[in-house]
């Protein structure tokens, strides 16, 4: 299994994601430079956390025009697994692969702390080794993590069971406590918390590993 980690100027969780896949899971991972129009032969793509292009204009607003993004969109359209963590989630909403937007936290502060997430569905390639209702302790680290969308979109996400994770104790004002969502085809995941920062025993929690394990297990089955 080989997972590609896209590197934008300003990405800072790219190496952590690479480490989780290679050292904690024992699979292959490789970096994909944002200027590359080709994803190579990867089986899944991760858009990592960080501050792509300095978060200028809006978080993810410049990254969506990177040369690599048409390839990511094409990969997703063909059913490929794409996961965006934190800034990666912001990029996925900006480029339209996921609905809604991430705005400034309600309390205005940048929040960096472990939070409890409730798994809302096991029916996705990112959560298939987890069980609904399970609580994961995974860190958040964001200033713009408040998920917003119009009521119709939120209702649709609920009806189609596309809310992957909710905060047990909402830290940022996100509508309906949303921490992570799935695309209609369920092959694109965006989440504000950082599973790659909870993947090694040294980090205090390995609860994030389940998301990477689910991806690998979905790829093995396919």
């Amino acid at each position: 299994m080989k997972i590609g980690v896209v590197v934008f100027p300003g990405s800072n969780c790219d190496h952590d994601a690479w480490y989780a896949v290679t050292h904690n899971l024992g699979h292959k991972a490789e970096f994909i430079w944002h200027g590359s129009a080709d994803l190579g032969d990867v089986d899944a793509v991760i858009l990592p956390g960080g501050f792509s292009y300095g978060d200028y204009l809006r978080c993810g607003a410049i990254a969506k025009f990177s040369a690599v993004m048409p390839a990511v969109k094409k990969f997703a359209a063909a059913g490929g697994l794409v996961a965006g963590f934190c800034n990666g989630f912001q990029i996925l909403t900006e480029c339209g692969l996921l609905p809604g937007a991430l705005i400034r936290n309600r309390g205005l502060k940048f929040i960096c702390k472990p939070v409890d997430l409730r798994v809302e569905t096991a029916g996705s390639p990112f959560t298939n080794t987890l069980r609904p209702g399970q609580i994961l302790r995974i860190p958040i680290a964001h200033g713009e993590g408040c998920y917003v969308a119009d009521d119709d979109t939120l209702d649709q996400l609920e009806k189609q069971r596309r809310i992957a994770f909710r905060y047990a104790d909402n830290p940022n004002g996100a509508m309906r406590d949303i921490a992570g969502i799935l695309s209609e085809g369920r092959n694109v995941l965006g989440m504000m918390p950082h599973p790659e920062r909870a993947s090694d025993p040294l980090m205090g929690s390995t609860d994030g590993l389940g998301i990477f394990e689910s991806m690998v297990s979905a790829l093995v089955r396919s």
């Binding site: 705005i103 400034r104 309600r106 309390g107 205005l108 408040c146 917003v148 119009d150 004002g173």
Partner: peptide, 14 residues
Amino acid sequence: SLKRTVLDPQGQTI
């Protein structure tokens, strides 16, 4: 400008 329906915490703080 942020849509009227979207929370503007900066505006509120100001």
